[in-house]
């Protein structure tokens, strides 16, 4: 066979592969947007569910997810950023730092349902927080820790070495150098990672199954020790556990969840783009 014909065929096959990845994404989005739009109005977004979730809104689930995500970030961001600072600024190439990196890789790979088991074992039962926003937030926080650490590491590593040398040579201490000459310039990257972590936490179901999520709780949580509904779990419940839920309520819930997650990702992408454009070193 002619080599150029062969090349043409090969390229077409590869192009087809790419289409097979991307087209279904668009199809999924299109289906959910078209079918979900009709369910969404102000009352759907602001009212509590009624009549066994067949009617009313999904406000408690939206609010619950926001609480959980916020809690997860409050826990994971300080810990993740400090951890990245340790890896980039303090640790030297030795056994301990290799072990830390291996641990991070494995945390990123632990199945989400195992995080759920862990959260149940340690937060719900051992620390006796019960099934609560606190337990769920901490579990989600640990789950997104690798995302935050990895993004923060990349952000810190992208700050030129010269900034550190200049600051130290002016008599600043190591921490002052990190605080004033490194962190401010790594901030956009850390923020991007944080928003990606938010998106991840907002969409996860398995870690909150046994740690916080309530099946049907048509009132709002009042403290961090309360259970709460959450969007992804709500979608699971009304798709598989409760018969007779109108289709547009299910699609509407899926659309709200999808919009929340995609907007967070979009924000991260825009932020990253803006940052790269503005960067001057």
């Amino acid at each position: 066979m002619n080599v150029y014909l062969k090349q043409k065929i090969a390229f077409s096959v590869l192009f087809l592969c790419t289409l097979l990845v991307i087209v279904p994404v668009l199809v999924i989005l299109a289906i959910i947007f078209v079918k979900g739009m009709s369910a969404i109005d102000i009352s759907f977004l602001t009212e509590v569910p009624i009549k066994g979730m067949k009617e009313g809104g999904i406000f408690p689930a939206i609010l619950g997810t926001l609480y959980l995500v916020l809690g997860a970030v409050l826990f994971a961001v300080p810990l993740g950023v400090l951890s990245a600072i340790y890896l980039v600024e303090y640790s030297r190439e030795n056994f301990l730092s290799r072990l830390v990196k291996l641990a991070i890789v494995n945390l990123a790979g632990v199945p989400s349902v195992v995080y759920g088991l862990f959260g149940l074992g340690i937060f719900v039962l051992y620390f006796e927080f019960g099934a609560s926003i606190l337990s769920g937030s901490l579990t989600l926080g640990i789950m997104i820790l690798p995302v935050i650490i990895t993004a923060s590491r990349e952000a810190l590593e992208s700050v030129p070495k010269s900034f550190r040398i200049v600051s130290l040579s002016l008599g600043a201490s190591k921490w002052q150098t990190i605080r004033h000459s490194v962190l401010p310039h790594a901030l956009p990257g850390i923020l991007t990672g944080t928003i990606l972590g938010l998106g991840r936490a907002a969409g996860e179901t398995a870690p909150i199954l046994f740690t916080v999520a309530a099946f049907y709780l048509p009132k709002l949580p009042t403290s961090i020790f309360d259970q709460t509904m959450a969007l992804p779990y709500h979608l699971y419940v009304i798709s598989t556990q409760v018969p007779g839920i109108p289709e547009n309520v299910r699609y509407g819930t899926a659309l709200v969840l999808l919009l929340l997650v995609l907007l967070l990702n979009l924000a991260a992408i825009i932020l990253r783009y803006q940052f790269r454009k503005r960067k001057r070193w």
């Binding site: 010269s162 040398i165 600051s167 201490s173 002052q176 000459s181």
Partner: peptide, 22 residues
């Protein structure tokens, strides 16, 4: 240093950096 390494700050903040740290 051989290469000038201004910090990505204003002129004022570059020079005030050391004193502020102290």
């Amino acid at each position: 240093f051989a290469l000038p390494f201004p910090l990505p700050l204003s002129i004022f903040d570059n020079i005030a950096y050391g004193p502020r740290m102290h």
